[in-house]
Design a protein around this nucleic acid. Structure first.
Lengths: 342, 342
DNA sequence: TTGTATGCGTTATCAA
DNA sequence: TTGATAACGCATACAA
C-alpha cells in the first residue's frame, strides 16, 4: 500500500532497524521489549540504532497481537463539571503512572451518546472501562458491560453483579444522616432539603437519608413543603429552589442542599434577602467543591477527595484487570467539613 | 495464539461472519464499510448476520492497514482547570460529531510528562494532535510536532511555522488594552496589574498590553510597585498579591488581574479590608469563568467562549488533516463583559 | 544467542 | 458481483 502522501515522516519499523543492524526483526523486538535472548554486543548496537533512527513501537500492531492496548475508556456525563473533572484528573494521573492512556468520552446525560461511546470504546479494544453516572437502563447497561474484560462503574448501582465489574459508590445516604444529625445537634429541626434531578441516584439516596435522619432525630414537624424535588443541580437551580422555599416553606432554620453549587445559590439568595447565615438559616452542601471556599461564609459541606477517588477507581480497575483481589463493590464515605455556613 | 482466558466473549470477526454467511471475508468487509460490489441479496443477508452475531470492527486491525485511527490526542496542563475543561469539552463534542475519539493527557506543567504524552500519542497512531499551553522549549516542541501528520497548537507561539501545525492564540495583548482603556475612560489612572506565572506566555502578553495601554492612556504616574510579578494564578495567589499591593502599592484605583480566579481573590481581600468595589477599586479579570458570576459584585472580565474555542480547535485540526483551507495562525479576541466589579 | 514461520483482523489489489 | 492473496507491524512459538 502507498503511504499517505501527506505523511510527514514514514514511521520507522522493526524491519527498518533490523535491516540497518543486519539482524532479524526478532532481535530488535526483543531489545525493544527488554527481553532476554540477545547478546550484549548486539543489544548495544541495536539499542543505539533504535534511538538514532527514532524507532517508536506501533501500538496498533502490538495490540493486535498481544490483545492489550494499554488504554482504558473513561465515560463521564460532562468532563467540564468539576466533580467529574477532578475524578478524571485522578484517573489520568494514576493511569499515567501505570503506563495506561485514557480515552475520554462525555455522555452528556444522553443515552444515545453514551451507547455510542461504549461502542466506540469496544471498537478500540480498550483494556478496561470506567463508566461514571451511567444513565442507561440496567438492561442496556449490562448488555454493553459484558463485552468488556474489566469494568469499574462509579456512581451507579446495578443489581446484577457481573463478574467483571466493580461498583464504586458514595454513601450518600449515610452522608445525609451525618449532615442532618449535625444540624439537629445544633437544635435546628426545621430543615429543608433541595433534592437533585429525579433520575439521579445520588439525589434519591440523599433524599432517603435526609428523611430517615429527620425521623430518627425526632423532627416530626418536618413537612413535604420543605422539600424541593427535582431541582437543577446548578447555581441557578439553587437560587430558584431557595426562592421557592421562601414562598412555600415553613419556618426553615437550615437547608441541606443537593450539592455545593446549589448551596451557593441558596446562600446568595439568603444574602439578597437579608437572611443571616448561619444564624437564621444554616446551609450544608455536598461535594467539597472549590466554590464553597470562596463564598462568605464558607460553605459547610460533605466532602470527598475526588482526585483520590479517581486514583482509587483506576487502581481498582487495574486490580480487576489483573484478577487480583477483585472487589465487587466499594462504598466511599464523605467527610463533614465544617466551615462557616453551618 | 490462545485467547486470554479471562476474555468474556471472543470478538466476532469478519471471518466469523463470512463463515456463517458462506461468503468471503471481503464481501462482509464491503458490507460493513458500505461499499459497492455486493449483490442486494447477499448484502441483506450479511447485514442481518452482522447484527445478529454482534460484529464490531476492530479498530486496531483497521488502523493498521488504513493508517487512520479516527483518534486525536489532546494534551492540556490540567483537565481539572475549568479553562481547559471547557476547551476539552468543546473538542470532544466536535470530535464526537465528526466520528473521532479523544486521547486525553495532562502535562501537569511538567516537561517530562508532556514529552511522555507526545510519545505515547505517537505510539498510538493518532490522526491529529492538539497541544495546549505547551511548556516545552521551541526546539523540543518542534522535534516532537514534526512527527505528527497534523497539529493544532493552542496558547503557545512557536517561531518556526511548521507546515503541519496551526497555531491558535488568544490576543491577550489586545485584551489588556481593552481592559485598561475601559478603566482609563472611567477616569481611573492608577491601575495595578497582577501578572501570572513568569513562564506563561499569556502572562507576558497581558503584561505587555497593560503597560503599553497605560502609556498610551497617558497614565504616566503608574509605578512598577503597582505591578505584582509572577503571582500564582489561583484564588490564593490573588489574595496574596492584593495584600502585597495594599502594602507596597500607591493609590491604586483599579486592578487588572491575570485571571478571574485571581480577581476573585482580590475582591475578597477588598471586602475583608472594607474597600468598596468598584467605588474605591475597580477589578477586571480574564476568562469569563463561572466563579465570576457568583461573587458580589459580579466580576467584570475579558471573556472567551471556551467551549466554542474547543470546537474551533477540533474543526481546525480536521481541516488541517484534510489539507483543506489550512490556516497557519488564528487569533481569538476576548470580549469585555461588564458586570459589577468595574 | 539468533532466526523463521505464523497469525492478529482488516483493507487494497487484482483476478475470476 | 465475488473471492484469493498480500500487506499493515508486531509478538509468539519453535527451530537452528
Amino acid at each position: 500500500m502507498v503511504k499517505k502522501s501527506h505523511m510527514n515522516v514514514d514511521r520507522v519499523t522493526l524491519a527498518d532497524v533490523a535491516d540497518v543492524a543486519g539482524v532479524s526483526i526478532m532481535s530488535v523486538s526483543r531489545v525493544v521489549n527488554n527481553k532476554p535472548g540477545v547478546g550484549d554486543e548486539t543489544r548495544k548496537r541495536i539499542l543505539s540504532l533504535v534511538k538514532e533512527m527514532g524507532y517508536v513501537p506501533n501500538s496498533l500492531a502490538r495490540g493486535l497481537v498481544t490483545q492489550e492496548t494499554k488504554a482504558v475508556g473513561l465515560i463521564v456525563p460532562d468532563n467540564n463539571n468539576p466533580f467529574f473533572a477532578q475524578i478524571a484528573r485522578g484517573v489520568e494521573d494514576e493511569a499515567y503512572e501505570q503506563g495506561y492512556s485514557i480515552f475520554l468520552m462525555n455522555s452528556v446525560e444522553n443515552t444515545t451518546r453514551e451507547e455510542h461511546a461504549l461502542d466506540t470504546l469496544f471498537e478500540n479494544n480498550i483494556d478496561g472501562l470506567i463508566s461514571c453516572s451511567s444513565r442507561l437502563s440496567s438492561k442496556k447497561l449490562e448488555e454493553h458491560l459484558k463485552h468488556f474484560l474489566s469494568v469499574v462503574m462509579f456512581n451507579r448501582e446495578c443489581k446484577a453483579k457481573l463478574p467483571n465489574v466493580t461498583q464504586i459508590n458514595v454513601d450518600d445516604e449515610w452522608g445525609a444522616t451525618v449532615a442532618v444529625n449535625y444540624l439537629v445537634d445544633q437544635g435546628r429541626c426545621t430543615i429543608a432539603h433541595i433534592s437533585g434531578p429525579a433520575n439521579s441516584i445520588s439525589a434519591k439516596r440523599r433524599l432517603k437519608g435526609f428523611e430517615e435522619a429527620l425521623k430518627k432525630g425526632g423532627c416530626h414537624q418536618n413537612l413535604k413543603s420543605n422539600i424541593i424535588y427535582d431541582a437543577k443541580p446548578t447555581y441557578e437551580g439553587g437560587r430558584r429552589a431557595m426562592l421557592n422555599l421562601l414562598e412555600v416553606g415553613h419556618n426553615i432554620d437550615a437547608v441541606y442542599a443537593f450539592n455545593d453549587l446549589v448551596a451557593v445559590g441558596v446562600l446568595q439568595i439568603c444574602k439578597e434577602h437579608g437572611i443571616k447565615v448561619p444564624d437564621d438559616i444554616a446551609i450544608i452542601g455536598v461535594d467539597g467543591a472549590f466554590i464553597g471556599t470562596v463564598v462568605n461564609p464558607k460553605l459547610t459541606t460533605l466532602k470527598i477527595d475526588l482526585a483520590e477517588v479517581g486514583r482509587l477507581i483506576m487502581q481498582t480497575l487495574l486490580r480487576n484487570m489483573n484478577k487480583q483481589n477483585v472487589t465487587r463493590s466499594i462504598m466511599l464515605h464523605p467527610e463533614l467539613v465544617v466551615r462557616g455556613s453551618a
